[in-house]
Write a protein that binds this DNA or RNA. Sequence first.
DNA 1: AAATGCGCCAACCGCCAAGAT
DNA 2: AATCTTGGCGGTTGGCGCATT
Length: 512
Amino acid sequence: MMGKANESEDRKMSEGRLDLASIEEACAGESFEGGGHLKKGPWTSAEDAILVEYVKKHGEGNWNAVQKHSGLSRCGKSCRLRWANHLRPDLRKGAFTPEEERRIIELHARMGNKWARMAAELPGRTDNEIKNYWNTRIKRLQRSGTPIYPPDVCLQVLNGSQDDHKSTLPTGDPHHHDLLQGDDFEIPDVKFKDLDLHEYLSYSPKLLDIPASSFLKQGVGSSHPYNYMFPTMHPLKRLRESETLFPGLDVSVSGALPVFNHYVDYAYENVAEPINLSSSFDPDLDTNDQLPSGVLPGSHALLNGNSSSSKPISGAMKLELPSLQYSETQLGSWGMPASPLPSLESFDSFIQSPPTEQTHSPRSSGLLEAILYESKTLKCSKNSPQQTSDASVMPGAVMESSPMNLGEPNSPLGHSSASVFSEYTPLSGSSMDEHQSVETMLGCSIMPKTVNQDPTHYVKKKGISNQRDLTRPDALFDLGWFGHSNEHGSDQSTLTDAIGALLGEDHSNRNK
DNA sequence: AAATGCGCCAACCGCCAAGAT
DNA sequence: AATCTTGGCGGTTGGCGCATT
């Protein structure tokens, strides 16, 4: 494009070869120079030269002074971007190497769309570059129906994040940064146990007839280069509200909702009344054709009271479906026995991937998150006296009576859970009133944990909450979802139970 | 050969946080 | 304390070039 046209010249100029004639030309060419009009659009080599010269003289920063000192009719912002993305001498040009690509995948798995932070991990690369790369890659995968994260990356992230977080703990090695280097957040007072994820996932091994560890590990070594387990998650935009949404709430708790952080966000945004949230998996509705019209299978109907549920699944759904690809073929490629796997429908009930065509969207909830979310909510539903569902009954039927499901066909909650989990981006802030609603909605109280007596502690610490990308696959670990037992001593067991129940449920359904 | 679609990527835009005034 | 300025970040746009039809 524009840049391409100037690419060669840009390179030349960025190498420091100034052409004074070009500079004059650039300045002269700006008829509006100094007139308050700032040029936009592609940079010319002459402009680049001016900027390079300016930076040589004055160094980086104070970009708004560029115009004043150099006569360049570009806003400071534009100058900064141009310098950072194209003129910096330490820039590394050219295509990403395979190592870099893998690194990007890993980083994205950990950080989400934190391009700048990712760029910091990739010397010579810019956030824009990475972002572009990722976006095009997403599109490609979207088209091909391939999940985003390779299983080995997922595993690495999962395992690695545990380590990483241990390292971020007060007792951890402060020099161990690895992929989390540059994270400006901490997890204060979060005590990780030597807990193996596999314990959780193997809680109900019968269920899949394979150890849950295999579940995760099967993907490693898959011959499928893009046999990814986790989909791309759209991290919350800036969940600034999160701090105020959960005032005084232990980050390990508020943060321990990564699975449905979008949901929470969403809920805060839209839920006016307390609602009962439980797993909405309805064993009786585990096939699409049995569903009431417009109702998505499983838990996702739960959140579907509205447009999503009322409109045809196809089409719009395509944009919201998880990128987890559960084609039998792919499952097989993960090395997992086909039969022991939960039926597609079963998994779909978790993650709302309609067992229809191979749909794909990188912008969707991940399997692990979905499972955990479901399990968590399931547990919550069991514990919540407000739940209309019998704990012994498969969760999900509840949703039929969910106000958001029945009463508000146009409620935004009608989004599929997948979309809610992964896609929904709040349009505005939320209120404390809504906070209350969500707690109720979740069907279980989110127990505040006084990690820091100052409820604004995390807010003050440059966005401990909002900077942490809760949608990252490892967010669970980051935030102590796994291996973190709060003082209520319930998280771990709760989760374990919930997963067990959930998996068991799934299992039972599979055997139907 | 022309039309169309898609990939790539530079640049812009809006928002936000931090610092300065 | 309020306002302004600056820099940074993430999302989006739009144009060029290539491939396909």
